[in-house]
Design a protein around this nucleic acid. Structure first.
Lengths: 117, 117
DNA sequence: TCCCTAAGTATCTTTTAGGATACTATACCA
DNA sequence: TGGTATAGTATCCTAAAAGATACTTAGGGA
């Protein structure tokens, strides 16, 4: 890690990952390969079309996902992770691992609060 | 990584790291140890007192930083990373590494765009 | 002839994050 | 007597993210 936090590039990764839906979209595509728009939508309960479209376009812009349109009616559009997008996997791994620990940490804290109250 | 993205805990890590100031605050404390409020403020050009206070309180709430108040006037308050907070380091490492690659990736893309235009 | 589908747009409203600015307390120092 | 320093609060305001809802397109099937 750099000596000077000012020069650090953590924000770059963060800017791609933040948002209520982006991490889970990336995880779905990482784990399940190519998916149609409607499949993704079904996989993300609560997301609106507008949001899904927006997030996917932003990820495409960053070269994290690839969008393939089949010129047919009704439309068919497939999304998949790019090779470059796959390079985010270690970050997501690290976060997942930490998140699991974090759940335990919170539970322990709650237990302690109960005991002292 | 879990088979089902729904059960994944990536969001937990993300929720702690997001925000315009949190990652850089954590990095400062990780690298420079204990710091007074005013020192942190000087290290973060552009941050307002309100924001710094807010971010620090939220990190304290999550047990990422520790806050120690010395009962004296003018006030003295010291902040430091907790052991638990230190466990975020691998995530920040992974992000930093990726961010560095990302910069290169963007530069290559720009070069290609210039060549095709 | 009309409805269905898939993958969107277009508007409008709500929620959240972030920022600007002013104010506070109180010991110490000139 | 008044100014300085530190670590905050208290209000108000703007911008960005997110959400709700309605509309579009055009081929195929009943």
């Amino acid at each position: 890690m750099e000596k000077q936090p000012e020069n650090c590039r953590v924000e770059d990764a963060l800017s791609i990952l933040v948002g209520k839906w982006k991490p889970i979209i990336i995880l779905h595509l990482l784990q399940q390969g190519t998916k149609r728009f409607s499949e993704l939508k079904r996989s993300l309960p609560g997301i609106t079309q507008k949001m899904l479209t927006k997030q996917l376009r932003e990820l495409e812009e960053e070269d994290i996902v690839q969008r393939v349109v089949y010129p047919q009616v009704p439309p068919k559009v497939e999304y998949s992770i790019t090779e470059y997008g796959r390079s985010l996997e270690p970050i997501l791994e690290a976060m997942h691992e930490w998140g699991t620990k974090h759940t335990l940490h919170k539970m322990e804290k709650q237990k302690q609060n109960q005991m002292t109250s």
